[in-house]
């Protein structure tokens, strides 16, 4: 690999990283927290609750869902 090519790799990686950092700054505010919460809950359900043999009986409703 030529030195130019090595450099191009390094700078590409750095540029992508920088872009990700800025993107994450913004994403954190607008939807990452929701996603994180969902993943945490989902993982807890899949790893813990679903293995305990609990029931999955449909809950009752008394008026139309919103």
């Amino acid at each position: 690999m030529t030195e130019q090519k090595k450099f191009r790799l390094v700078i590409l990686f750095a540029v992508v990283l920088t872009a990700l950092v800025i993107l994450q700054n913004v994403a954190k505010e607008y939807f990452m927290a929701d996603l994180e919460g969902y993943l945490t809950r989902r993982l807890y359900y899949e790893r813990t609750i679903s293995k305990k043999g609990l029931s999955g009986q449909k809950g009752m409703h008394w008026r139309e869902q919103e």
Binding site: D34, G37, Y38, R41, R42, Y44, Y45, I49, G53, L54, S55, G56, Q57, K58, G59, H61
Partner: peptide, 26 residues
């Protein structure tokens, strides 16, 4: 309840838009 969120009662969960009781018969 958001998806996969459990209610304050600890027994009712929203699984993909369906409310489920975790304790039926348990």
């Amino acid at each position: 309840l958001d998806n996969y969120q459990i209610g304050g009662c600890r027994t009712r969960i929203n699984k993909d838009g369906v409310l489920l009781s975790l304790v039926y018969g348990k």
